[in-house]
């Protein structure tokens, strides 16, 4: 069965390693914070100026001066720090962030990413995404593989304006886990109960099935 968004986040959380500073984008990536494996130390950065972001506040304890990049009210963890936007992007551009998880509208098989603009239609802007994808060395895309019209978002080529080039390393969707290799999308894991045929039908770009293919495991 295809995963729900929270389970996609749970699978991505398995990529977290002890000592990682992590930037989570808006949407599915935000949910990753709920699934940090026990026994490891992680600090979450929000690019609007906080390292060591905690959970949402209890009702009545919201602080207008304490939000994340999605403008949601948050709390901080012991050891947290605040800083200005220029310093925040020094962390990002200077490759001090160990893992970046973000959403996408389209990912083509060369590892480009488009997630900021639909010409003539949606105008939201790139926010910090272009800075993140241009500098991060460890980028995971979290997204639904098929859009609302039933079309694949894992493509041969992007049709939308790009956010960054040749930057995506790994993609986790409701159907599988993929790595970008020179030949295309390497399927390394499938969601429990999802057939390879279903995955092939949902992948417009070149799909290569790994020799070490396995089912995702959630212990």
């Amino acid at each position: 069965m295809a995963l729900d968004k929270d389970t996609i986040a749970k699978r991505i959380a398995q990529e977290l390693k002890n000592g990682f500073y992590v930037n989570l984008g808006i949407g599915i990536p935000t949910l990753v914070a709920n699934h940090v494996p026990p026994g490891i130390a992680i600090e979450f950065q929000s690019e609007n100026g906080v390292m060591g972001m905690g959970q949402f506040p209890f009702e009545g304890e919201e602080d207008a001066d304490l939000i994340n990049a999605g403008k949601q009210t948050i709390t901080t963890m012991p050891g947290a720090s605040f800083f200005d936007s220029a310093v925040s992007f020094s962390m990002i551009r200077g490759k001090h962030i160990d893992l970046t998880v973000l959403g996408a509208m389209e990912v083509p098989e060369n590892g480009n990413i488009a997630n900021w603009k639909i010409p003539g239609k949606m105008v939201k802007g790139m926010g910090g995404a272009m800075d993140l994808v241009a500098s991060a060395e460890n980028i995971i895309v979290a997204m639904m593989q098929v859009n609302k019209r039933g079309e694949s978002k894992l493509l041969k080529r992007c049709s939308l304006p790009l956010t960054g080039i040749k930057c995506v390393k790994k993609i986790v969707t409701e159907l599988g886990v993929y790595e970008i290799i020179p030949e295309g999308f390497l399927l390394v894991e499938y969601a429990p109960g999802v057939s390879i045929k279903t995955i092939k039908n949902a992948t417009e770009g070149t799909l290569i099935v790994s020799d070490n293919l396995k089912e995702m495991s959630f212990s």
């Binding site: 949402f56 209890f58 919201e62 001066d65 939000i67 403008k71 949601q72 009210t73």
Partner: peptide, 11 residues
């Protein structure tokens, strides 16, 4: 000091 996305968790 308006809050744009008031997001809370329950106790």
């Amino acid at each position: 000091k308006r809050i744009e996305q008031r997001t809370v968790r329950s106790k």
